[in-house]
């Protein structure tokens, strides 16, 4: 009898706990739809190795949000190396997780255009563009090329004998956009692809490659020490800073191209509107804080915050990038 009552008593407790749990659960979800977001830990995915551009950007965002106390929940950066597997995971695993945001760049559009990845910006929810890195065409200090025009002339008359070097991924897009616009058949140019801009600087310093395509922030040290010389820069207007203000843009140098590598924050495809709104507002506040401004100055990133029009921007970019990829000879329908 006693044992029975005991069991009954326990049953009641369990039922009560269960009910309370369900109650709290429903209350929690009701709150989640509204003002309580994010409510729990945010997962911040950087789809590349630690130390890469994605990783640095994400950690800079976390640092700024924490120090400026803009987000109260814990934020964990997760490195999912590789932009292709990374975006695949974002789509396949986190599409419906409102507590995941990630960072992407032109790489995402490039991977889709080359057929490397089946996913692109319509498969996730772009939130806001944060920063842009600008490109430059560099030569060794003692190079005979004085202007971008000199280099283009040689690339036209002797494409085989004018090898270039640069990164294998995004950098190739700038190279393709620039030189195809200049009227060169870029599939004839010798382009030695390296892991990134800095890595490809060595062969230019040594002399094997005639010019380097790289983001400017990557090789700033070599520019400052006058080992490399900058022929032209990619943004629409001249850049600031003592070393950069006298350098012509591509357009001024005679090629009507403007290029940058932008990084943007995205959420899963199923991210609710209130969460998107929350992040657009929070990031909008963040980019104005001194912490963020100080950081992008140190990393030499260009501030290019864009929240509302980002979908349209990415649509347009995808068209341009697909076109460049075709000119590069890298699009998916190529046959040998």
């Amino acid at each position: 009898m006693k044992a029975f009552r005991n069991r009954e008593y326990r049953l009641w407790i369990v039922t009560a706990l269960l009910l309370a749990g369900i109650g709290m659960g429903t209350a929690g979800s009701a709150l989640a739809a509204g003002q309580d977001y994010p409510g729990k830990t945010m997962l911040m995915i950087a789809p590349s190795k630690p130390g890469s551009g994605f990783d640095t950007t994400m950690r800079a965002v976390v640092t700024a949000l924490t120090q400026e106390k803009l987000v109260q929940v814990p934020m964990t950066v997760m490195n999912m190396a590789g932009s292709v597997p990374g975006t695949a995971q974002i789509v396949l695993r986190y599409s419906n997780d409102p507590n995941m945001i990630a960072v992407m760049s032109t790489t995402g559009s490039l991977n889709y255009a080359t057929g490397l990845s089946p996913y692109y910006h319509k498969d996730w929810r772009p939130i806001a563009r944060l920063i842009s890195a600008y490109y430059g065409i560099f030569v060794r200090q003692d190079s005979p090329y004085k202007t971008l025009g000199d280099l283009i002339k040689d690339l036209k008359s002797n494409p085989g004998g004018t090898p270039l070097s640069g990164g294998y991924s995004d950098d190739r897009l700038c190279y393709g956009a620039l030189f195809s616009k200049a009227g060169i058949d870029i599939t004839k140019i010798n382009y030695a692809a390296f892991a990134g801009g800095v890595e490809s600087a060595g062969v230019v310093l040594e002399g094997s490659a005639k010019a380097l395509v790289s983001t400017i922030d990557d090789v700033m040290g070599l520019l400052e020490s006058k080992q490399l010389r900058l022929l032209a820069v990619s943004p629409g207007k001249r850049m600031e800073g003592p070393l950069l203000k006298d350098i012509p843009t591509f357009r001024e140098a005679g090629v009507d191209v403007e290029w940058d590598n932008f990084r943007y924050i995205l959420g899963g495809k199923g991210m609710p509107d209130h969460a998107v709104k929350y992040w657009r507002e929070t990031l909008g506040k963040m980019v104005k804080t001194p912490t963020w401004q100080d950081m992008i100055k140190k990393y030499r990133w260009g501030d290019s915050f864009l929240a509302e029009g980002i979908d349209k921007f990415l649509d347009e970019k995808q068209v341009v990038i697909t076109d460049v990829v075709k000119k590069l000879g890298m699009d998916k329908k190529q046959k040998k």
């Binding site: 190795k49 130390g51 640095t56 890595e199 060595g202 700033m220 040290g221 020490s225 990393y299």
Partner: peptide, 26 residues
């Protein structure tokens, strides 16, 4: 030279930059 020789030194390069230090010949 400011050229990282490995993945790890590439992260160090990033760290240096955050402290306002530009590795390179100078």
């Amino acid at each position: 030279l400011g050229i990282p020789g490995s993945a790890t030194t590439a992260v160090m390069l990033g760290a240096f930059m955050i402290y306002g230090i530009q590795p390179g010949p100078l």
